Simulated scan of single mutants.
Amino acid sequence: MREAEFCEAQERVALCKTVIRSAGELVLQGFRKRTATSSMKGPQDYLTETDAASEAHIRAVITEHFPDDHFFGEEGGGVIGDRIWVVDPVDGTANFARGIPHFCISIAYVEAGQTQFGAIFNPALDELYFAERGKGATLNDRSIDTARTNRFEAASIEMGWSTRVPNETYLGVMGELLALGANVRRAGSGAMALAYVADGRSDGYVELHMNAWDCLAGLLLVSEAGGAVCPFFEIGTLEFGGPVLAAAPGVASGVSNAARIPIAVAPTADRLAASG
């Protein structure tokens, strides 16, 4: 990479960390007031005024600094391009609307068909997750790793639901995970669920259909934290999403078999040893 390209790449990284925190301030203000009205985009799919305000803020800041980059957001959409910011302005909106402090902002930057860096920020807990390809994953600048769980009797797996997939299919996967001995739970934010796999709070996450803005940052986080993830860009698309799986290495194969979602290249033994 040429020096100019390296500097531009680092400017994007710095901007991502800055804008996600400034958007977090806006989102936290909306959460504390909780006076804004909410509406429904679809079954169990909430929309608040804060979603739109957060996305507009992020879009404006990125466009000001990198006007040639593309932007693809949950609320306003966008045009798919080679250099693109993929943004969920508030993931976990149902929690947000009901006063539950489990929600986040998710930003991923994709270039040449790969997620280069990503951030997930829960402003209610002041927890900022960040990962850059090949440089590991952090929580508030502290290095994180996936759990070392290797028995399903000790595993907690989170699942997310999508109306694009029949309930019977989800119940079938959940039944297989329960049969393995896992605890299956749902907390209402797919992006946060992936971040929790990255830092070992959960052992896996499965969603049979997930939008790109919900998962790209989280998948990179898990991968950079030493976990196993699905090959999202092979089985899904930026525009239409796809199935998502992320798991601690010790249970990844079983989760993959239960969900029937493939795993990308698994973490090497050397990398796992290096992670502690």
Rank of each mutant, 00 (worst) to 15 (best):
D199G: 10
A179L: 00
C215F: 10
R185N: 04
L219Q: 12
E224I: 06
A187F: 13
S189F: 12
C215S: 14
D203C: 04
W213P: 03
E168V: 08
G175R: 00
G175W: 01
D214I: 02
A228S: 15
L216Q: 11
V197S: 12
A191C: 04
L194G: 07
D203T: 12
G200K: 10
A187R: 15
L171N: 04
C215Q: 11
M210Y: 12
G188Q: 07
V229C: 08
V222A: 08
G172T: 02
L220P: 10
V173I: 03
V206I: 15
A198T: 09
G227M: 03
E224Q: 14
H209L: 14
H209M: 09
L219H: 08
N167P: 02
L221R: 10
G188H: 04
G190N: 13
Y196R: 15
G218K: 04
L171K: 05
G218R: 05
A195E: 13
G204H: 12
D214A: 14
E176M: 00
D199V: 10
L221I: 06
E224A: 08
A217G: 09
M192D: 09
L216E: 10
R201V: 14
M192Y: 09
L194V: 07
V206Y: 11
G181E: 01
S189G: 06
L216P: 11
A179P: 00
L216K: 10
S202W: 15
D214K: 14
V222C: 06
L177C: 01
G181P: 01
V206N: 07
P231I: 03
A198D: 10
V173F: 01
Y196G: 06
M174P: 00
G172D: 07
A191K: 05
A195T: 12
D199S: 09
A179F: 00
T169W: 05
Y205M: 08
L216S: 05
G226P: 07
A228I: 05
Y170N: 12
A193Q: 12
L208G: 13
W213L: 02
D199F: 08
M192R: 11
G200Y: 13
A182W: 02
M192G: 04
C230Y: 05
W213M: 05
L180F: 03
V197E: 13
Y196W: 15
V222Q: 08
A225L: 10
Y170P: 02
R201W: 13
R185S: 11
W213C: 05
S202H: 15
A195K: 08
G226F: 07
H209W: 14
C215I: 11
C230I: 03
G172L: 01
T169S: 02
A195R: 10
R186V: 10
A217R: 09
C230P: 07
A228T: 09
H209A: 13
V184A: 00
D214V: 03
E168C: 00
Y170Q: 02
L219E: 07
E168I: 06
N167I: 11
G181Q: 01
P231E: 05
V222S: 02
Y205P: 11
A187C: 02
N211Y: 15
D199N: 14
G200D: 07
V197D: 13
